[in-house]
Amino acid sequence: MKIPIEFTLNGQKVRTEVEPNELLLNLLREKFGYTGPKYVCGIGECGACTVLLDGEPVLSCLTLAVDVDGHEVTTVEGLAKSRELTLVQKALIEEAGVQCGYCTPGFVIMIDKLLKENPNPTEEEIRDYIRGNLCRCTGYVNIVKAAMKAAEELRKGTTKVAEISKE
């Protein structure tokens, strides 16, 4: 038996019908084509499926689709407005915090959220905030660097940045 739901997805009102046991992760990926959130473990261990639910990070592999009825969901695809990157996205590229990129959407969401809560985090605070996100490529070094750099930019008053310039 399908259940009708209605919610805001990356700024747009959407309606759909879901199975009672359908996961938010699958709904986003299969029905709406937002494949930024990734399946890595499916049991809440890696953070790669992180999305924002009413502005709070949740693991979409552990969230039932029916539960977002009436709420607001933002995936990594919804963070960058039109052709603009967020400070975190820009810093991740510039600091080489992206290798294979499979973990990246989860880190983008978490660091973005961290900087909203605390624009002046220490290195320890950054590491602690992203401890639930696994990365097998970078050893987290350049991801932490990128977070520090984005925080610095934020404090300087840069809010959004233009599309990344060419070379």
Binding site: R29, E30, G33, Y34, T35, G36, P37, K38, Y39, T75, V76, E77, L79, A80, L85, Q89, K90, L92, I93, E94, A96, V98, G101, Y102, T104, P105, V108, E163, I164, K166, E167
Partner: peptide, 23 residues
């Protein structure tokens, strides 16, 4: 020299399609 990796933007915006993302 440091340059911006070609797949950087698709990766940070979550728009790059891995084989698992193909439907």
């Amino acid at each position: 020299k440091k340059t911006i990796r070609k797949d950087g933007i698709p990766k940070v915006t979550g728009t790059l399609k891995f084989s698992s993302d193909i439907y």
